[in-house]
Computed example of a mutant assay.
Amino acid sequence: MLPGMARADDPVTVSKAENGLLIYSIMAEYNWRPLLHGFQALYPWIKVNCLDMGPSEVFERYYAETSVNRPSADIIVSSAPDAWMRFAAKGGIGAHVSREEASLPAWSRPMPGLYTLSADPMVMIYNKLLLKPEQYPDGLNRLAALAAENPLKFRKRVTTYDAAAHALAYAVHWAAITSGRPGGWDLMQRLSPAVRVESGGAAMMEKVTTGEYLVGFNVSAVTVWPQMATKGRSEIVDWTLDKDGTVLVPRGMAVTAGSRSPASARLMLDYLLSHDGQVAAAQGGLMPYRSDVRPDEVPYLTYDGLVRRLGGEDRIVHVGYDPTMLDHYQDFIARWNATFKARR
Rank of each mutant, 00 (worst) to 15 (best):
69 N>Q: 14
136 Y>E: 14
158 V>H: 03
158 V>E: 07
142 R>L: 11
69 N>A: 15
97 V>Y: 07
160 T>Y: 08
146 L>M: 09
130 L>A: 08
77 V>L: 13
140 L>M: 14
153 K>N: 04
101 E>D: 11
133 P>K: 09
173 H>Q: 12
119 A>H: 00
157 R>K: 12
137 P>D: 10
165 A>R: 07
94 G>L: 10
174 W>N: 09
71 P>C: 04
154 F>Q: 06
154 F>G: 07
174 W>T: 02
108 S>L: 04
124 M>W: 01
79 S>P: 13
85 M>F: 02
89 A>G: 03
121 P>G: 05
122 M>N: 15
95 A>W: 02
113 G>Q: 00
128 K>G: 04
78 S>P: 09
69 N>F: 15
131 L>H: 02
74 D>V: 00
142 R>G: 14
81 P>K: 02
153 K>S: 13
115 Y>A: 10
136 Y>W: 13
161 Y>K: 01
85 M>N: 02
96 H>D: 07
111 M>T: 00
87 F>G: 05
92 G>A: 05
130 L>E: 13
129 L>G: 09
92 G>M: 03
113 G>D: 02
144 A>P: 01
64 A>S: 13
95 A>E: 12
92 G>K: 01
101 E>G: 02
90 K>Q: 14
131 L>Y: 01
156 K>E: 14
88 A>H: 10
103 S>Q: 12
114 L>D: 04
121 P>L: 07
137 P>M: 12
88 A>Y: 13
105 P>N: 09
125 I>T: 13
